[in-house]
Amino acid sequence: MTDQDMSKYPLRLADDKVPMVRFMNVTKRYGDLVVLDSLDLDVDEGEMVTVIGPSGSGKTTVLRMLMTLETINGGVIYVDGEPLTHMEKGGRLVPADRRHIRRMRANIGMCFQHFNLFPHMTALENCMEAPVHVLGLPKAEARDRSIELLGMVGLEDKVDQHPARLSGGQQQRVAIARALAMRPKVMLFDEVTSALDPEVIGEVTNVIRKLVDQHNLTMLMVTHQMGFAKEISDRVCFFYDGKIEEQGPPSEIFGSPQKERTQQFLSAVLEAG
């Protein structure tokens, strides 16, 4: 990207109301395949935004870019007004170095479809690992914080269990507690119930419900559970082929979708599920 191109991106966001997350003209390619095409998306502080759409439409990629698990090929992502993918150098935005990314990444936490708990650590150790070794918290404090969070997700009696001894629903709840233990401002959920047996999905959605009710977290959630999305979201984004085809409050997206693709997708999903 040339300097000319970068000049249209502010060094930091300074409107009256700065969004917690801003994707500005973000493009992601794998080789020739354009996965996300000039994406613009804002998420406000404390907002719960749900991302829905067909498989392969780029939903996971949106979260992974924000988690800095993927680099981007164009545009800028801002978090809390500061560039995440870039940094200021001599009055210009240049691609972020490792240090900048690590500093900015502290604002973001993520839960994955397959939990990705550390199998060689107990539930408690999973939660304490990063607070102790990344944040440098004293062990006792990290422990208290982790036990409180494991209690919040309903697992106070499982703190000393290894992941292999926990059900999928329990593992996913540990993963949520582990991410929260880092006190992120933004939480990302990528199909966190898709790998679960139907009867335990509720354990996990209840925890997310609680987060929405009791915390001022900013959340971006990819899900195939339309009922849950409808109930919990402030806003729903329907992705199609690397673009936001339609977005709005859940009542509108689910009640009276305007775009034909949205209608087709929703009727297909509702029929199937």
Binding site: A106, M110, F112, V134, R178
Partner: peptide, 22 residues
């Protein structure tokens, strides 16, 4: 599994911490 690396990155661990501890 790749997910182990990614979880460690998401928790903001350094490269050395990821390797040594995870």
């Amino acid at each position: 599994p790749r997910g182990q690396w990614e979880a460690a990155i998401a928790l903001n661990m350094t490269g050395a911490q990821r390797m040594r501890r995870i």
